[in-house]
Design a binder for these strands. Sequence first.
DNA 1: ACAGATTGGTTAAACGTTTTTCCAAATTTG
DNA 2: CAAATTTGGAAAAACGTTTAACCAATCTGT
Lengths: 337, 337
Amino acid sequence: MRITMKEIAKEVGVSVTTVSHVINGTKRISEPTYNKIMECVKRHNYVPNYSAKNLRNSATKTAGLVVPSFPDSYVTRYINSISKRAKEMGYSLLFVNTDEDTDYEEETLKLLNAKMVDGIILAPSAKASKPLPYDVTFLKDSMPIVLISRRHEAFDDCPVVIQDDYQAGYDAATHLLYHNHENMGIIYAVEDISPTNDRIRGFEDALKEHGLKLPSNHIYQGYATVEGGKKAVRKLLENQPQITAIFTLNDSMTIGAISALKEMNKKVPNDVALIGFGDFPSAAVMDPPITNINLSPDILGQTAFDLLLNKINNPGYNKSKSVHLPTYLITRKSCGC
Amino acid sequence: MRITMKEIAKEVGVSVTTVSHVINGTKRISEPTYNKIMECVKRHNYVPNYSAKNLRNSATKTAGLVVPSFPDSYVTRYINSISKRAKEMGYSLLFVNTDEDTDYEEETLKLLNAKMVDGIILAPSAKASKPLPYDVTFLKDSMPIVLISRRHEAFDDCPVVIQDDYQAGYDAATHLLYHNHENMGIIYAVEDISPTNDRIRGFEDALKEHGLKLPSNHIYQGYATVEGGKKAVRKLLENQPQITAIFTLNDSMTIGAISALKEMNKKVPNDVALIGFGDFPSAAVMDPPITNINLSPDILGQTAFDLLLNKINNPGYNKSKSVHLPTYLITRKSCGC
DNA sequence: ACAGATTGGTTAAACGTTTTTCCAAATTTG
DNA sequence: CAAATTTGGAAAAACGTTTAACCAATCTGT
């Protein structure tokens, strides 16, 4: 049970009114009482109950957003799938995009924790190799959390539903090896998150099995946009002209890659072969059609919600219930097939 | 003020307990009392207060969904923009995709109305030329509503923020006329909604001013997907081979159009010129780069939220505050420029 | 020094539900 | 027909806040 104002008041020896005034700054309260209350609040990680706030204030500080349909893409597809599943189960969805900003992520988790939600599906933005830049212990035992599409050791005890990124990287490399490539490169967008790390690791391991290495300067980061993909490919090939195959880890960047190669008069796949990630809608109609590592965002989303629901109804649920979804290589022209 | 259980109880002459049991079916209640209560409930359009429910049940039936970033596209961009603005103003966002399903839209509005939200931004899914298939009067005086990107006469008294679809259609036609096209076609996705209707009307009016007509069999509907665009263009040109320019109203379909024309060995823009709608990320890197009608989803979203906030704080807000955003023609190769 | 204002705090009601406990009347049982 | 059970409904507490009304004690100005 979460601590309430009443308990704080009792512990400090004041009225709930005073606690409320201190917390909201709605009235001048003497320094000593203020400090005693704040200390108690901090010590117990007090968070206000928004259901009560909402009832009392007859306002929710929540707006509805209703749209008739939603474009196709990896993230939007799993969001859509979660949203459908949530509806089927009588749940609503409170959606936040943190924009890869961990500070905002922290704020968001705190807000959602304030009892506005029964559980959280999270794709964490923190760097995978570093500790989480905020304290999450206060959350983990009171709030059911399920990770989606990204892992982080700070949430190692939470169930996670994720595509098999390692295998995806392994498969991409293996297929390019089958086409006799020896000098390969990788273009990626977000640094040091599990999908990026795992795909690269799988890619490297496949190469290693064939006695090959992926030099670190063959791995290039760019912005997750079409322009970003163009720039990244251009830079990569300027510096490492011996590269004959590229694995792009982001669909916008894949489109940019095709475009950059065209502008550099490199034929795909003859001069440079290409494998993309995430079977985005235009992949099949590009020139040439793009070979892709495909995953199932619909299943990803649905599974994530089901896992969350189970965890809400059964607090004992833990990591052991994690789900790893396979990825598939869809061969088209861009790899040389 | 919304009617409560207490008032129902008083009016019928029973206790709130009984009302609660009738509404939730949690106890057997005699036929006559049941009927009296239900009649009163219906007559007053009673909706439960979810803030109170949530408080009492210590559950919200709401899940949090936190993602680190969001792909680029027309709808997702304005959603993102709304979400950013909401955050700045201390609001959360409850997001629902109705999938063009008016029944689900009705359910959704009812749910959001149950005091879970302070206002609603709505892109309605109903056919523009028909009356709304559900009753919305119960909503309109109690719930601030702002329309985004689509109009509907049932919401004629609500502020709306919308792109200038008529002008967009007019500009597209005018530009194609400038390139000396006389036989043009339109490919669209969703039938009888204001964006589709207005763009077509603007297009037709521009033609009319030059003494030309747009035959109805030059206007073709398809699915809002790449495949859908391919199929639509193929059908359109099979039946009307004299067409030399196509205006596509949906970005996925535009990509499909390019691909279909390529497969039909029609050169763009020499055999068939193309103007698309919504400046999607890959438009500039397609082959050829696609001329587009551009709009500003970021401003659209931000304005919608600001309007909603104003309406929440000032119930007198009405239609007169609507905002029409201009669209821009971005010329690239596909139109013949 | 005394009326008036200010400070720091308390009491208690209210928001709209759900649910436990209780009870009288009606019905069944033996 | 008395005892036991079932039925239909009510009273009241509880969920965790906010806030209006109040009050004693201290501070101010003259």
